[in-house]
Amino acid sequence: MAGNFKKILLSLTFVVVFGLYVIYQKNTSGGANPVVDTLQTNPSQINNNQDIAMAPMSKKNKFKNGQYTGNSVDAFYGLVQVQAIIAGGKLTDIKFLDYPQVDDASLSRSNHALPILKSEAIQTQSANVNAVSGATETSRAFGESLSSALSQAI
C-alpha cells in the first residue's frame, strides 16, 4: 500500500510540475523560446487535466520572488538538483545545479566522411504501441527537485 501511495504521490507531483510548466511556457513572452515555434506538436494537445490542476495555483498562489534550491533527487544515473528563479511572482528560469552525465572531459572525435543523415520535424503519432522508449528517470527526478524548490516559494 505504501508503494501505491508513493506512486500516486509521484504521479501527482508530476502532473503539478508539468502544469506549472505549461503556465511557465504561456507566461514566457514570444520569441524567448524557439522550441514552441518550430515544434510540430500542438500545445493545445497537452492533457487538459494538467491545465485544470494548475489553474487555481497560478491565480491564488503567486510565488515569492527569489531563488529556491530544490532537493537533490536520485535519477538512478546520478543526482538531479534544480534551482527555481522567481521574478515578478512568476517562475522565470530553472537552473540545473546537478545533472547526471558521463564524463565529457576527454577526446573530441575526428570526423571521417559520413553520409548526410536524413532530418525531419518530429510529429506526434497516434497509433497504439506496446511500449514507449524515453528518458523517464531524469524527468521524474527533475519534477521532484523542482516541486521541492517551488514549495519554498509559496
Binding site: T41, I46, V129, N130, V132, A135
Partner: peptide, 15 residues
C-alpha cells in the same frame, strides 16, 4: 513489437 519513441517535449506523446 511496436515501440513508440517518446516526445521529449511532451511526456504523454510519441513521435
Amino acid at each position: 513489437w511496436k515501440i513508440g519513441i517518446k516526445n521529449p517535449f511532451n511526456n504523454s506523446e510519441i513521435v
